[in-house]
Design a protein around this nucleic acid. Structure first.
Length: 881
RNA sequence: GCCCGGAUGGCGAAAUCGGCAGACGCAGCGGACUUAAAAUCCGCAGACCCUAACCGGUCGUGGGGGUUCAAGUCCCCCUCCGGGCACCA
């Protein structure tokens, strides 16, 4: 179509979409035509972007972008994410690396089931159709994926390895089943992991409050790795600080002590001291026996304040509270109210805002440090699933305890003072919570500093058998059971005789049946398929039932990037030597919304695989990059906001090159990006300028490609200088800052300089060989950002080798160097003039030039020059009085 | 409440190590080309003051202070916006 062989004046370009025509000498840039042609040519070369095997002599580089959920359509967030990764992959190929740049599909999950309900299409069919559509889109944009390693997580050749890993974890005691309170989303009709609850609501259904339900669930013991996940964050120097901080908060390590308070024998309490108004409940002897010798364990980070404890506070769900309630109907009613308040607060998400309430149980416990008798309360702000579900209340030195004690008139005891003021200062303003403090009224521990006291008191407790120093994590084990159909079946059986039995490895995969009626109520859909459920026990041969829950889809994405190295292996999840060659991932790129969920599960999975002996690394990702969101009209693009811009539409209007290049130009990649369609048009105009320039001069460039003398005309020198400055700028940015917006601006400046010099070029001021070099380098500089145009230009200037493997241009410092530089001259810090000096000028010469400059001389005449500050190559500041 | 980001022309942004604030682009204005339009090309463009016009001057990077010959950049205080965590004991 476009006659690239004949790109001179007579060239006519015909296209199907936007009609292009010949206007005098000008050739119109027609991205629709150019891109269609190259899309077709690339499709005929399946190995174009193929990684070389591990035997390659090149150094390896693994660049990875987060795989998409196959919703059926790419959105701008994808385009941005993948344009960054694609630019990097192309650049690294050109830098001589063996690049692995794979893509796949996170293909299990709820939307397929919802679509099935809505359209009566089986989830599998719907998903595969979407994948096909998105793959077409990706290829239309021209992303450089090595499709030989494509993975699709909903296919058995992938998910069988989820099952295999699950069995391995079960063997190692890392997968276990327990009944627990779980987060339940009524809309999803399934369980959510803690990580999937956002502000008390479902992460998919922003308005949907999450309920608590009791269910038997499978858990993965991520807490076994809590400490290592925390410690190894320090190895992740190539990760954004923000992501590391979020993970650190999520893991939530808290150092403190667990202390046991002995509960007073219930029967010993004199009637008149028992909880007022508790009525006539009679304590049966059997229950009294249960109370005897019971201890209440509390977790505290401030054991140094334990002499100031004036009560204990238990969670409403605490087992001991349940026992107390069993014999005290009135207490039960009061506690039930507290439970309700807590549940409501949890479900509404603003747990921090609820009003504190509590009730005295009528029971007492003894402080093991001083024997003091403390009332035992139940309070609605104590959480059963953190620490021990019980606290010691120290109102003088804790904000929450203070608030609570004020409300209920509980005693306050001051036991620490500010370190600096000393005892003479009297009582501090309460609550006083600083750790920079000294103990008072604390027996043998008085006058110790808080830090020292914490250590000594924990040791004391351990010595006397009523406590010890402990560490508590906020991180909980990962609940992976989902009562859904479209996921990996959990490979477990329940035998009447043998109980829980793993499916033998040889029977994997446990296939997900195809014909399943999807409804949104009544537990797992698989449970309604007798052919799936009913099986035999591999141990005893008797009747057994299959587990009917499926796995959380975050399991799929926790290890997928290992599979890319060996996607068709049917003997193992991957070959160790392939992973050893490609890992760690050199650069991972994705949205910050996965900073916790996906990125922490992946790190966990890697550590488990290491402990299984499958791999030899501690962390999967060397460098992680979190790109910003795509914004339109001040809000994140979303269907509900109605501000979605379709990539297809942009591509149809301006071309894939302009669309992806705009996504890199409009903001630095880590910042939010404001989508403005006029900006895409601007990029399209720029590419058109490049195209016209190249078409106009391509002939001469081909003629001069055989090199030749470079004459030193000022125009030639100026253009070469600009070229080498641009190469330097972009090369440095890829290595460091990734400010592709300024990289593209630099290319624009280069092109501006070229078009401005067209009269001189036409007049023969630039030798053909130089013109050839400039055009060739310009094409290479564009290649990571606008690959279609780059390939087109590459051919048009007579290059026949593969552009993707062409070496990245090298910059020459000598050519990049300015001969003359402008030095601003200030007087008393205010800019007054600019002098132009030779770039090699000495300080003395610059100083003289500045002082003798006409305007400066006039302004300083008759004044005393106190000082002259001279910053080499930067500025002169003359201080006068 | 705690922890991260961020705030610069009409708009997206640039200024990488304390050294000419606003590169590059969008929108806008003026001009050339054209019968006309589109496309393209050239030029102007932070605000204010002075001027017939030039020349020139003052102010200006969310607000207030400070350090410095010099601050968008460093220090202290504050406001607003975005994100994360949160009765976590």
């Amino acid at each position: 179509m476009a006659t690239i062989e004949n790109s001179g004046a007579a060239t006519a370009v015909k296209g199907d979409a936007a009609p292009a025509c010949t206007l005098g000498q000008e050739v119109r840039y027609n991205p629709a035509e150019i891109e269609a042609r190259w899309t077709e040519r690339w499709a005929e070369q399946p190995d174009l972007y193929a990684a070389e095997p591990a035997s390659s002599a090149k150094p390896k580089y693994y660049v990875l972008e987060m795989l998409p959920y196959p919703s059926g359509v790419l959105h701008m967030g994808h385009v941005r994410n993948y344009s960054i990764g694609d630019a990097l992959a192309r650049y690294m190929w050109m830098q001589g690396y063996n690049v692995l740049h794979p893509m796949g599909w996170d293909a299990f999950g709820l939307p397929a089931e919802n679509a099935a309900l809505k359209n009566n299409t089986p989830p599998r069919e719907w998903t595969l159709k979407n994948i096909a559509a998105m793959k077409v889109q990706m290829n239309r944009i021209g992303f450089s994926y090595d499709w030989r390693n494509e993975i699709t997580t909903c296919l058995p050749d992938y998910y069988r390895w989820n099952q295999w890993f699950f069995l391995k974890m079960f063997e190692r005691g890392l997968a276990y089943r327990k009944k627990s309170k779980v987060n339940w989303c009524p809309q999803c009709a399934t369980v959510l992991a803690n990580e999937q609850v956002v502000g008390g609501c479902c992460w998919r259904h922003e308005e949907q409050l999450v309920e608590q339900r009791d269910l038997e669930q499978w858990f993965l013991r991520i807490t076994n790795y809590a400490q290592e996940l925390l410690d190894d964050l320090s190895k992740l120097g190539g990760w954004p600080e923000k992501v590391r901080t979020m993970q650190r908060n999520w893991i939530g390590r808290s150092e403190g002590a667990e202390i046991e308070f002995e509960l007073e024998d219930w029967t010993d309490v004199p009637e008149d001291e028992k909880r007022p108004n508790r009525g006539t409940a009679i304590l049966p002897a059997s229950n009294a026996a249960k109370g005897m010798g019971k201890r209440i364990a509390v977790f505290t980070t401030r054991v140094d304040t334990i002499f100031g404890a004036t009560s204990l506070q238990l969670a409403p769900e605490h087992p001991l509270v349940k026992q107390m309630c069993a014999i005290d109907a009135e207490l039960e009613r009061a506690v039930e109210a507290l439970r309700e308040q807590q549940k409501k607060a949890r479900e509404s998400g603003d747990v921090g805002a609820i009003e504190k309430h509590g009730v005295f149980t009528g029971h007492y416990a003894f402080n093991p440090f001083n024997g003091e008798r403390l009332p035992v309360w139940v309070a609605n702000y104590i959480l059963l699933d953190y620490g021990t579900g019980a606290i010691m209340s120290v109102p003088a030195h804790d904000d929450r305890d203070y608030e609570f004690a004020k409300k209920y008139g509980l005693e306050m005891k001051v036991v620490i003072l500010p370190r600096r003021s000393g005892e003479a200062e009297g009582e501090p303003l309460l609550p006083f919570t600083s750790e920079d403090s000294l103990l008072i009224n604390s027996g043998d521990f008085s006058s110790l500093g808080s830090e020292e006291a914490k250590r000594k008191m924990a040791a004391f407790a351990e010595e006397h058998g009523f406590g010890k120093a402990t560490v508590t994590f906020r991180l909980k084990d990962w609940g992976v059971s989902r009562q859904r159909y479209w996921g990996t079946p959990i490979p477990m059986l329940y035998c009447e005789k043998d109980g829980i039995v793993p499916v033998p490895e040889s029977e994997l995969p446990v296939l997900l049946p195809d014909q399943v009626a999807i409804t949104q109520q009544g537990g797992s859909p698989l449970g309604r398929i007798p052919a799936f459920v009913n099986t035999t026990c591999p141990k005893c041969g008797g009747k057994a039932r299959r587990e009917t829950d499926t796995m959380d889809t975050f399991v799929d994405s926790s290890w997928y990037f290992y599979r890319y190295t060996d996607a068709h292996n049917d003997q193992a999840p991957f070959a160790a030597e392939k992973v050893a060659y490609w890992f760690p991932i050199d650069q991972y790129i994705g949205g910050v919304e996965h900073a916790i969920l996906h990125l922490i599960y992946s790190r966990f999975w890697t550590k488990v695989m290491r402990d299984m002996g499958l791999i030899g690394i501690d962390e999967p990702v060397e460098r992680q990059f979190a790109q910003g969101m795509v914004i339109k009209n001040g809000a994140k693009m979303s269907k509900s906001k109605g501000n979605v811009v379709s990539p297809d539409e942009m591509i149809a209007r301006y071309g894939a090159d302009a669309t992806r290049m705009y996504s890199l130009f409009a903001a630095p990649p880590d910042r939010d990006l404001d989508w403005q369609e006029d900006g895409v048009a601007g990029i399209s105009r720029f590419l058109a300028r490049v195209y016209r320039f190249a078409m106009k001069h391509g002939e001469r460039a081909r003629a001069g490609a055989g090199a030749g003398p470079t004459s030193a005309t000022p125009t030639t020198q100026a253009l070469l200088r600009k070229l080498h400055q641009t190469i330097r700028k972009i090369t440095e940015d890829f290595a460091g800052r990734w400010h592709f917006n300024t990289c593209i601006a630099a290319i624009m400046e280069l092109v501006n300089a070229l078009t401005a010099a067209e009269p001189q070029i036409a007049a023969g001021a630039v030798p053909d060989a130089v013109l050839a070099e400039i055009l060739r380098s310009l094409t290479l500089l564009l290649a990571p950002f606008a690959p279609y145009l780059a390939f087109e230009l590459w051919e048009s200037i007579g290059q026949t080798d593969n552009l993707l493997r062409a070496p990245w241009p090298k910059f020459d410092e000598a050519l990049a160097k300015e001969e003359q530089i402008e030095i601003p001259v200030q007087i008393n810090g205010k800019l007054r003039s600019v002098v132009c000096v030779d770039s090699e000028a000495t300080e003395e010469q610059i100083r003289d030039a500045a002082l003798s400059e006409e305007k400066i001389a006039a302004l300083t005449a008759g004044k005393e020059v106190v000082r002259v500050i001279l910053v080499p190559r930067k500025l002169v500041n003359i201080v006068v009085k």
